[in-house]
């Protein structure tokens, strides 16, 4: 109980500090006088929540991230499994991917703009790329680290390669896949917002940058908070599903995660 009071108090104190610094127009090296006050932001948030545009932006960003993330999950798991299972596939598929991997997805924005007919597809592509690598790498490691004894057990029960894939490789790699999905979701958010800021139409990132360029600073903060909230929600969703499907892990491993 005392813990909760303390934590709540800390949050209220931070808000108070912000309100004080901005309403008193403190300009001491940092220009707090240029930032909106808590009250301004709250008023703007209340207003925006009543406009359909706000929800359209949320919906657009969510749609882009879900699309990019879903494609990345499919491709990342498929390629991760293929590369983790077969050295030959690894030799064929990995070199170009390893060249691309260190390039931050956001640096691909010019390519995305050139390559795709519309900005919309470009943004989804950037999101896909951002999420793809952590998912693929994580899956590959998880598949390569699977104990051989499970595979041998299924083989000596008469199982074929497909049975091994569905009954051993995929379920066994799931904890690793989910740690990749968590990381992937995080970077996908960063990239969808950045891509929207650069080339979007609608979307929370676009709206936030738009607010900045028209000197609507409370709007910028509302945008930031919305981005944070969506990021938190999507990460929590991945975490929740991940915990459900890996309930079989030994307790120690669960704590270590």
């Amino acid at each position: 109980m005392r813990k909760h009071l303390l934590r709540g108090g800390s949050l209220v104190a931070a808000l108070l500090l912000w309100q004080l610094l901005t309403s008193l127009h403190v300009d001491f090296w940092l220009h707090f006088d240029r930032l909106p006050t808590v009250v301004d932001v709250a008023r703007d948030l209340g207003y925006q929540l009543q406009t359909p545009l706000y929800y359209r932006d949320l919906g657009d960003s969510l749609g882009r991230i879900l699309m990019g993330f879903a494609l990345a999950a499919l491709a990342g798991v498929a390629i991760g499994v293929a590369v983790g299972r077969s050295a030959l596939t690894g030799d064929i598929v990995s070199p170009p991917l390893e060249v691309l991997r260190p390039i931050p997805a956001i640096a691909m924005v010019p390519i995305a703009i050139l390559l795709f007919p519309s900005n919309e597809q470009g943004i989804v592509f950037i999101t896909f790329l951002a999420a793809f690598f952590p998912i693929m790498v994580s899956t590959r490691h998880a598949v390569a680290a699977l104990p051989v004894v499970w595979e041998e057990a299924v083989l000596t029960m008469g199982g074929n390669r497909r049975r091994v894939l569905w009954s051993v490789v995929l379920p066994g790699a799931l904890p690793g896949v989910f740690s990749g999905l968590s990381v992937g979701m995080g970077v996908a958010w960063i990239c969808v917002i950045s891509a929207e800021m650069i080339s979007g139409q609608y979307g929370v990132g676009y709206r936030t940058w738009q607010a900045y360029t028209v000197v609507d600073y409370p709007g910028v903060i509302v945008g930031m908070l919305s981005i944070g909230l969506l990021g938190f929600g999507s990460a929590a969703a991945v975490e929740l599903v991940g915990r459900r499907v890996t309930r079989w892990l030994p307790r120690e491993a669960e704590i270590a995660r």
Binding site: P147, V149, W150, A153, V168, G172, W248, L249
Partner: peptide, 8 residues
């Protein structure tokens, strides 16, 4: 040991 599939 550990021949069982732990998620089943």
């Amino acid at each position: 040991e550990d021949g069982l599939l732990p998620w089943r």
